[in-house]
Nucleic acid binder design. Sequence first.
DNA 1: GGTTGTGGTGGTAGCGCTCTCAGGTGTGCG
DNA 2: CGCACACCTGAGAGCGCTACCACCACAACC
Lengths: 329, 329
Amino acid sequence: MTTAAHRPATLEDVARLAGVSRSTASRVIAGTGFASPDARDRVATAAHRLGYVPNPAARALVSGAGVRLVVAVAGTSAAVLDDPYVHRVVGSAARVCTPAGVGVALHWLPLGEPTGLDQLARDRSVCGVVLVNTTEDLLDAIPRSLRGRVVSIGIGSPTVPSFDVDNTAGADAVLHHLYATGRRRIAMVTGPQWLPCSRRPVEAYRGLMRQAGLPERVLPGDFSAARGRAAAGEALRRWPDVDAIYAISDETALGVIAALSDEGVRVPSDVAVAGFDDIPLAAMTAPALTTASHPVGRIATAAATALLDGRPAAPVTLFPSVLVARASA
Amino acid sequence: MTTAAHRPATLEDVARLAGVSRSTASRVIAGTGFASPDARDRVATAAHRLGYVPNPAARALVSGAGVRLVVAVAGTSAAVLDDPYVHRVVGSAARVCTPAGVGVALHWLPLGEPTGLDQLARDRSVCGVVLVNTTEDLLDAIPRSLRGRVVSIGIGSPTVPSFDVDNTAGADAVLHHLYATGRRRIAMVTGPQWLPCSRRPVEAYRGLMRQAGLPERVLPGDFSAARGRAAAGEALRRWPDVDAIYAISDETALGVIAALSDEGVRVPSDVAVAGFDDIPLAAMTAPALTTASHPVGRIATAAATALLDGRPAAPVTLFPSVLVARASA
DNA sequence: GGTTGTGGTGGTAGCGCTCTCAGGTGTGCG
DNA sequence: CGCACACCTGAGAGCGCTACCACCACAACC
């Protein structure tokens, strides 16, 4: 099946073995242009016999097509690179990119410094950029040369297609559930306020509270369980009559529940707790978490695929979020 | 700062602006070979002014250095690509690879089919492979041409450096803790048995049980919370007197606790539960999880760095695992 | 003065691939 | 028969970069 092949086979080798020119072999392998069935067949066999694998670097060099897809995460510190959400994006992107011979790189964009994007724009090996934690500033800072090679998981712009979960619908579903089960003193733990995708649920929350004539009680957070834990303690102190806490993420919700348990508050009988994301562990905690689904994998896959295809994507692709009612609320 | 530059600057542009030859510019940028302080300075300024970013594809093509680091995960199904553990490996690898202009790709190696590795070996753009879920078969199947470009997170071989947590020490620490706190009917939920790194803790468990004259009670699992949940139910049925369950992963342990709660069994008073990994959420569950630490990030970083450096790594690098005693045991 | 370095430099040959372009073959049609 | 128009093919020019080699200056040594 294989020759001694210390040196990996090149297209030249395949062409020689198949008895055609390098051009023809290239056409067959790439599947572009004309090729007779006979030639097609001979090249395919030769490629298989030699275990030929195209060299993405060479391909990228000449065709200008990039070999790397960059997942660029904005944030105040490099800690964003440890975010499980980001990891899931990278993982899903890698699944679609690998078959195409495209590697995935993870990049931190320090908040307020557009330099990173500038570098990316000049790097020819970058076939696309998936923005995570996108802000308005970031969208403004995108160099023209990057246009068409950027998509955003989060907010978009006329030139940057957006792929996102329907944050508002998710928040609405959870809050309605809380209301429908009799909760009237609902507090919320938000995410970082510089982040549009964490402002959205807050707006939904404020809107609904106002509409129902209920008090608005918002506590800052950052998606982490640790902040959720701290926030819940504060909620209890500031609003002893609180009967529900809505957290911006499941991790945060788990932190909230932990704090509540510490204080001897029962969930959900005393205080109901709901999250957002429906992470796998949400079904395993005690009590199991009521939450709204967030199909990260599908979102990331769609974003990466759009970039790989190179076709302009729809300005906004919204993925539905549905209520997953469990025990905590 | 930048010219109109629709076309990204090339080394040629930099050289012209600096008034030196492409060779000299290349030497300065790459930092190899001789260059006068004057030339060094002029090239640096020119590169900065043009916003020059080297094209990794071109670099890779000529130097033979790869532009992608592949995280190759063995497993029975592509579901391994959704494993949070794998994601953390990818994330950490990306952190060290990105500054070097190297992308990270995620690869699934179907169990028992060495084809995948063969492909990887022939792909010149691959600068290294990080094996995850390494098995003996996999190590045997590594093509000679890949030697020196492969490291393993898990078991290694004379030609494949291994980076791993000290599984045995971790298991020992947890089991001793269980024993020291009076548990004598200890069951264990393992991982997939084809995986050496899940056999190790089982061996530790069996050894200690035998040594202490205690019954051996092993239940199959797969690291997932769902399997942990199922296994715990079975444990209760088969061994009603069980007073502790040691799970191979924190996720599994969380599943175990969920099942126990469902059955009205109190943790830890009736049954103690311990896990392995110390995931961030381990501190947030009710009760908080007793576990042994597993520095995935540091392990992955070390593995990726070894590959990037190209220097032969130590045959085995073991990372310590320490007991993290919380409420569940 | 030669011969060795030693630091610095530029020319140039590719790395493996795609893409354009100039040719071939055939077939159909005026 | 000639001409257009398919289909198919191979030669060859690079993509941007590094590696190698030849070269030049200048110092140091016999």
